[in-house]
Computed example of a mutant assay.
Amino acid sequence: MHKESHAFREGRPPVNVSVNVMLEGWGDDEAPGLGPMGNPLRAGVLDLQARSWAAYGPEKGAWRLLDLLASRNIKASFYTSGIVAERYPGLMREIAQAGHDVCGHSWTQNTLPAYLDHEAELADIQRCTEVIRSATGTSPVGWISPRCTPSAATSELLAQSGYRWHADIFDTDLPYSMRFGDHTIVALPFSMEINDLPMSVRYGNEPSAFVASVKHTLWNWHRIGSPEVCLDVTVHAHVYGRPAGAIALIETLDFIASCPDIASYTSHAELAHLEASRRR
């Protein structure tokens, strides 16, 4: 694997903000390992509360977030479990028709690439790709692994499968290119500071902390020399698709829009395209 890094500035503000919606699903005998009740059930007991909590995402949360984004003309990346695309093809069509990118997120949240052998991981990528293509009419070209945890082979398998970018990347502020023989894929940094799941579910912060973190970052950007970065604003449809979280997201997006000299909206697709254009 060959990694190519490039400067990224093209007269744009230093903070390139991408909005991402995680649209996640679990299999029939699975449930999220992390939920609002905090105390996990004993091993071998299916957590029906956590399953019901997670089902809010495709049932209600994603629709609310679609309306919210449309009201501000913001295009997002919807990272989608294949099982959700299979069960909710109408939702997938609505997301795609609204101009958002429907991206791959493995078959279920318990399908972790790090646990799969080469053949099983490739089959999972292909299965997820095909069901999204069937629902939207377009094959996905962006990917994030569940838990953002790839295997050693994920980048190469995605590149060989026609993906243009993936965001299982945490070692940089700007995109770079990864080359595997004749195949190239853009590695997009995925920042975790503005992410509802760790912030509000894992650490128990109220939604106002989500907004405060963005304000603190942008108000003080000049204090670290104003470097150019890609900053992700990430919500999960089953977490901040709910009213209190959606309100926090509205406040966050409106504040970002009020800082045009510091931040501008983009998307993972646009960032990947800009990076890929430097290879030509």
Rank of each mutant, 00 (worst) to 15 (best):
M178H: 02
P140A: 10
R93V: 01
V239Q: 09
A246I: 12
F190L: 01
E121G: 06
H238S: 11
F78G: 00
E86P: 07
V15D: 04
G162Y: 11
T252G: 06
E24T: 09
E130M: 03
C103M: 08
I144A: 05
Q49P: 00
T80G: 01
E130Q: 11
A248V: 12
P89M: 13
V141D: 12
A123V: 11
L249W: 09
A272T: 14
F78T: 05
A248T: 09
E130D: 12
V186G: 00
V21C: 04
K215G: 02
S139C: 07
K75F: 11
R280L: 09
G25H: 03
P243Y: 04
A135P: 11
S18W: 05
V45I: 03
M178C: 04
R51C: 06
G35F: 02
V21M: 04
D171F: 02
C148F: 11
M22V: 07
S264M: 05
P189Q: 02
N16V: 14
S134L: 10
R179D: 03
R9Y: 12
G38S: 00
H222R: 15
N195I: 00
I95L: 07
D117H: 06
T138E: 15
A276G: 08
G241F: 14
S134P: 12
A212Q: 10
L66M: 14
E4T: 13
E121D: 06
H105S: 03
W219T: 14
S52Y: 12
R12S: 11
A50I: 01
P260C: 04
R223N: 06
I95E: 04
W143P: 02
R72C: 11
S18G: 14
P260Y: 04
G25M: 02
M199K: 01
S161E: 12
P58A: 03
E156M: 12
D124M: 10
H236F: 14
S151A: 15
A237G: 13
D28N: 13
N205E: 04
E193Y: 00
Q126R: 03
I95Q: 05
A7W: 14
W143K: 05
A246C: 13
I169A: 03
L122N: 11
I247L: 13
L41M: 04
V17E: 00
T154P: 09
A43K: 08
S258G: 07
P150E: 06
F210N: 06
E130G: 05
H216W: 13
V17M: 05
A62G: 08
H100Y: 03
A167N: 10
C259T: 15
L48S: 00
A212E: 10
P58I: 03
H268L: 13
